[in-house]
Design a protein around this nucleic acid. Structure first.
Lengths: 211, 211
DNA sequence: ATTAGATTGTCAAATTATTCACAAGCATAC
DNA sequence: GTATGCTTGTGAATAATTTGACAATCTAAT
């Protein structure tokens, strides 16, 4: 399989979101030109991106919204169920666990774990919060694919290293650190403070306009 | 001022994080070569990136960690205080408000707002959660620069549009929608579900290795 | 003071990503 | 059934980004 560039992958979820909206509004077909105007990108980029995965469109017609939506979903792996746990059941962990749309996309949050005894036992949509000590046996027996790490960097690093031995294939990492993992393990970082710093960069740049 | 590419900006917070750690460990100087090995990037890229903003290093010596840390901080606008509010005081909003490190970087979370009467009045580190109806007067009188939108897309869009008229200069947008704002207003998006989709793309790609 | 070694800043080359442009081919109206 | 108009897929051109290479020059050892 041809290697797809990261720039393309990063754009797919946005296409998926727009197609979902079009679908919800009963739109049956869309041309790259119309979609490009909606999304503020070039039509050429849309066509080029989609062509990495095959010809989904038809000359003189455009793309079938439903079909393209399903195809992109399948490219993104959303046609399969993904069993996840959340490690760190503070506000952020609970926010993720409670986010209903993940369910809709095939993400099953099977359990939450924490080391804080005030949280352990607390009921959530996804069952009672479990003791972090149980997490290693849990992932071995429950076939867990993705671990969301929503806790400070020191425990996150330590726990992630131990979880590697338990067969976890992917981390969704909210801790402010770069996890070091073998090549066959995926790490997707969400560094909120970095995103906020990009924002303040743009703010100070903005305040210089014309200077 | 020369226009700096987005690719460069996105890397600055990571440099900043590594420099902060070096500083905390008492490291005084660092060469682009050593830093490149720590960070898994090329030394050339580090030098090229930094040179967009001026010559911070010295031949035969490298970079002074403290000085470079401060300089990057100032480029990112972290030398100034930024007054923020959080709109949507659910788990995600509270997670952001409670994140202590933001304070350290000059982000002052002045208040939280919500429309849910069960949340209004609840005490947090940043004062009682206020009624969303009060937000418009609040930003006008309290000189608010950044609004974090941690609520579903429909109310997020509606409230953001009204806040534009109140002089808000930047949105940190967690809602799953692309806000449409004038050119002089900044939107920084954090689309969690899109990040999770990138992860599952990589997972399915991974499972194909060698096929 | 001199010298050997290290490391930057920067120019040029290589690579990657985006946009342009158009032939090929389908849809639709007549 | 034919003609017109639309829209894709794709090869080529352009633009942006990353990497390589090295002269200039600083540090530090003797």
């Amino acid at each position: 399989m041809k290697n797809i560039s990261n720039a393309v992958i990063k754009r797919l979820p946005r296409y998926y979101r727009y197609l979902d909206e079009l679908r919800a509004n009963g739109v049956e077909r869309i041309s790259s030109g119309d979609l490009s105007r909606m999304m503020n990108v070039t039509a050429s980029q849309i066509r080029q991106d989609l062509n990495n995965f095959g010809g989904f469109g038809q000359q003189g017609y455009g793309y079938n919204v439903n079909y393209l939506f399903e195809e992109i979903g399948s490219i993104l792996g959303l046609d399969k169920e993904h069993r996840m746990i959340v490690v760190g059941a503070g506000n952020l962990g609970q926010a993720i666990a409670n986010y209903a749309n993940f369910d809709k996309r095939g993400f099953k949050i099977v359990a939450l774990f924490d080391s804080n005894h005030e949280l352990i036992g607390k009921k959530t949509r996804n069952g009672e919060i479990k003791d972090i000590e149980e997490v290693y046996d849990f992932v071995k027996t429950e076939n867990i694919e993705i671990v969301a790490l929503t806790l400070p960097k020191e425990p996150a690093t330590e726990i992630a290293m131990k979880l590697l031995d338990c067969g976890v294939k992917a981390f969704w990492n909210f801790a402010h650190t770069d996890l070091e993992v073998p090549d066959n393990v995926i790490v997707e970082n969400v560094h909120l403070s970095e995103s906020l710093m990009e924002l303040t960069y743009k703010l100070s740049e903005q305040s210089q306009v014309g200077k």
